[in-house]
Design a protein around this nucleic acid. Structure first.
Length: 814
RNA sequence: GGGCGCAUAGCUCAGCGGGAGAGCGCUCGCUUCACACGCGAGAGGUCCCUGGUUCGAUCCCAGGUGCGCCCACCA
């Protein structure tokens, strides 16, 4: 064993061994008939491991390894999401580079090309999870577009259809003009943009009759003026009270439209008057539907002006804006233009400006389906952690709008809907079944749309286990236990898994949802490739090891947003190195001994008590999903208790090859390694392999059971510790009660090495200050009268101890 | 606009009703036979502000200020 631990070779070798030996496989090493299941949030098939994945992987792996050691039948399910738009986006960009569109190559060839591209460059992230030491059951990898999984998707869709929850509707949706598809509200990002707010005069149609000549509206999209059907004002707005009920003339198209009153208009914005364009604005659409207004559209699916735009047909919106503004200028109806910075909806994949358009789409009613999920959350059959997210999850479910399921894409699960020439829609598992329903001679056309990519993700906990077939895996591993994900995924994925799980399986898919921290860049900004603030976890693994990376990420994961800290990862590297070296000390001196836990001496009873206390703390922390606290406990157990005190105290006895000391040292090391294994699996497994005797891999060895025999000795070194601190500070050696205490003091402090006597002055001053503080407190009658008796007693104890220490110092004559 | 969270040592963060802590960085001393990715000793904080509750507040409550994330149809 070299004195410097080098994780690089060790980690790669052990990762291969664990997987080759089948130790990652579900159920391996189980000693109890109880399962523990986590499914990994399926990463995009095109994706790479980023810091969020690395943290989430570390969290899940700790839980899986901990439960595996406890003998549960563990399953950590891996797999990929086909990531509809994201994947199609990549391939379309490739085509664009060749001067082609997907329509040039055709649907079949496009899908084929996408599969080929994935063969070459996709599905790499599980390899990166392996480098983190993540003990997923890689042999079970699933893909949301695999044949069996697709059957689950179709089956579930048909089920929703039969429930009467699927319907088709013509309404306004978020349209991405680049991808040429509808997307859901949850896929829309909001970006701050600089726009121009244009104030336009709409003259009254009966101009001569009124006192003023019209109403001024403000818009950032003059091109949509062509599709205006009304002007709305707030009912309480005095400025426009007389205008309501009259008509104004829409510029350019010169169409008369009514002035209406609606509470949804904000009188404080712009001029307080809003032009109503139901075809191109979601808010206007709602107002229009409520009042039965018509819904003309002048912008097409490609984002350009459509035929309905008359002489502006085919122009871009910018060109149309310019033409309309010229028109307004000529007629003196352009009032003013001012800059406006506001949030604009964009496609989260391509960042195109979202075009709200009215299109015919398939929807799923949500009010009924989510009811059992809301009940499950209220009854805490599923618990989100932290609690604040539980409340958020319930509120989100209570407020779930109908789900737009259809996407005008080619990469995904095609809707299992066929239409007859008469326009009747038939939903069936297969084309043959649809044909059977329609009758033999009816020509059916399959709906070309695919499902929202999150539709398939929603089935992940049971579709990965073989549903809709009643497989053994489904029986063995559903329902699962824990799911862990990022905050922004709660509505997209977590809530949906819960309601679909209740719908399909009748049970919640897991009992606990961990919403882990968001890892920000060191400067507090979001980690993102485009900002250049991202840090690649593979780089920190290369530099410091997977163990160090895991430890560091867990250590910083306490609040909802955490800044990435290189120091935390370096701390992890030091921990691994420290373990490595203290193991060398023990192994080099304990040759021939067998691990045993039959302590003879004080330091041995003490370290076993400390290890057991740490075991308890770590178990409590992990059970509460508090990974930072567990990391902290393990760090201090290793450095402070095990290395600084126990190892130093027992060292002379190891050098002397005392059998009891050697055996207990090996036994204590075994327990220490086991406690640390879920966090730093590689270095602990490697050291484990050097321990004497035939042994199973640590990954499948038992988690240390409670050992409370020496609980009373957990504080047994307090007096030695105090004496050591005093000696190091002042050079004064106080008396100790027992031979063991004196021996340990001598071994750890080695007073013979103290070159010159220290200075007792500062220590005396410190104690006098403490004594003054305690004396003052105890002299306060209100404190003595009102504080709890144990607090007063503790203060008295402290005072006595300080006086004792001061006496010892003063009496030393230095 | 709504929700959630954070403001404590130079940096990253614990602590959350009774003596201000850790890691890193910094200073000083150690070629101590596990480890210099080490050991030991230090310096360094009006615990964001203002009120309130309390015998006592970094910790609880109210208000304020600053910052972050998520969500959201002010054109």
């Amino acid at each position: 064993m070299e004195s410097l631990y080098d994780p690089t070779a060790v980690e790669a070798r052990l990762q291969q061994a664990w997987e080759r030996e089948g130790l990652y496989a579900a159920g391996t090493g189980a000693t109890r008939d109880e399962s523990y299941v986590i499914c990994v949030p399926p990463p995009n098939v095109t994706g790479d491991l980023h810091m969020g994945h690395a943290l989430n992987g570390s969290i899940q792996d700790v839980l899986i390894r901990w439960h595996r050691m406890q003998g549960y039948r563990t399953l950590w399910q891996p797999g990929y999401d086909h990531a509809g738009i994201a994947t199609q986006n990549v391939v379309e960009k490739q085509l664009a580079a060749e001067g082609l569109t997907r329509h040039d190559v055709g649907r079949e060839a496009f899908v084929e090309r996408t599969w080929q591209w994935l063969e070459q460059t996709g599905r790499t992230i599980m390899g990166q999870y392996r480098r983190l030491g993540a003990s997923l059951d890689y042999g079970r990898e699933r893909f949301t577009l695999d044949e069996g999984y697709s059957r689950a998707v179709t089956t579930f869709f048909v089920r929703l259809w039969e429930r009467g929850w699927i319907y088709r509707a013509n309404r306004i949706v978020n349209w991405c003009p680049f991808h040429q598809t509808a997307i859901s509200d949850l896929e829309v990002a909001h970006e701050e943009m600089d726009d121009v707010l244009t104030y336009v005069l709409y003259p009254f149609a009966d101009g001569a009759a009124g006192g003023s000549d019209g109403i001024v509206i403000a818009t950032v999209r003059p091109a949509t003026i062509l599709a205006d059907v009304a002007v709305a004002v707030h009912p309480d707005d005095e400025r426009y009270r007389d205008a309501v009920g009259r008509e104004v003339v829409v510029p350019y198209v010169e169409r008369a439209v009514p002035v209406i009153a609606d509470e949804r208009v904000d009188p404080a914005f712009g001029s307080g008057a809003l032009k109503i364009t139901p075809g191109h604005d979601p808010a206007d659409f709602e107002i229009g539907r409520d009042r039965g207004l018509s819904e003309p559209m002048v912008i097409g699916l490609d984002g350009r002006m459509s035929d309905a735009a008359g002489d502006l047909a085919g122009r871009t919106q910018d060109e149309a804006d310019a033409a309309i503004i010229d028109w307004l200028k000529e007629r003196g109806q352009l009032v003013k233009r001012e800059n406006l910075r506001h949030a604009v909806g964009t496609c989260e994949r391509c960042h195109s400006r979202i075009e709200p358009l009215i299109t015919l789409q398939w929807w799923c009613r949500m009010e009924e389906p989510v009811k059992p999920a809301i009940a499950a959350l209220r009854e805490r059959r599923v618990r989100y952690h932290p609690e604040s997210q539980h409340r958020f999850a319930i509120a989100s479910l209570e407020n779930t709008p109908d789900w737009c399921l259809s996407r005008q894409l080619w990469w995904g699960h095609q809707l299992p809907i066929w239409t007859t020439p008469e326009g009747e829609a038939i939903c069936a598992l297969t084309e043959a079944e649809a044909q059977e329903q329609a009758g033999p001679n009816v020509v059916l056309t399959r709906d070309p749309d695919v499902l929202d990519t999150w539709f398939s993700s929603a089935l992940w906990p049971y579709a990965t286990l073989g549903w809709p077939d009643e497989t053994d895996d489904l029986v063995a591993y559903y329902p699962g236990n824990v799911n862990s994900t990022a905050r922004e995924i709660i509505r997209l994925w977590e809530n949906r898994m819960i309601w679909t799980g209740l719908e399909v399986m009748g049970e919640v898919p897991f009992t606990d949802v961990i919403i882990h921290s968001t890892v920000l860049a060191a400067d507090g900004r979001r980690m993102s490739k485009s900002l250049g603030t991202g840090i690649d976890p593979l780089e920190t693994i290369d530099a410091h090891g997977a163990d160090a990376t895991r430890y560091g990420l867990l250590k910083i994961s306490s609040t909802q947003d955490v800044r990435f800290s290189p120091g935390a990862i370096e701390e992890g590297r030091k921990l691994a190195n420290k373990l490595w070296n203290v193991s060398r000390l023990i192994l080099q001196n304990a040759e021939g001994a067998e691990p045993a836990l039959q302590p003879m001496a004080l330091e041995e009873r003490w370290i076993l008590a400390r290890i057991d206390a740490a075991r308890k703390q770590v178990e409590e922390a992990w059970a509460a999903f508090d990974f930072a606290t567990a990391a902290n406990v393990l760090y201090h157990l290793t450095f402070d208790d095990f290395c600084d005190w126990y190892a130093e105290a027992v060292k002379p006895r190891l050098y002397a090859h005392e059998p009891a000391a050697c055996g207990t040292a090996l036994g204590a090391l075994e327990r220490l390694l086991a406690l640390l294994h879920p966090v730093v699996p590689h270095v602990t497994e490697e050291i484990w392999s050097f321990l004497p005797g035939e042994r199973r891999r640590l990954i499948v060895s038992p988690w240390p059971s409670a050992d409370e025999r020496f609980e009373a000795d957990a504080d047994a070194l307090d007096r030695v510790h105090e004496a050591a601190v005093m000696f190091r500070r002042s050079g004064v050696q106080v008396g100790l009660g027992s031979d063991d205490e004196r021996r340990i003091f001598a071994a750890v402090v080695r007073p013979e090495r103290q070159k010159a006597p220290g200075d007792a002055g500062p220590e005396i001053a410190r104690l006098e200050k403490e004594i003054a503080r305690a004396t003052k407190m105890l002299a306060n009658e209100r404190f003595v009268a009102n504080a709890p008796p144990e607090v007063v007693a503790a203060e008295q104890d402290k005072l006595e101890r300080f006086r004792r220490e001061l006496d010892a110092l003063a009496g030393s004559g230095s």
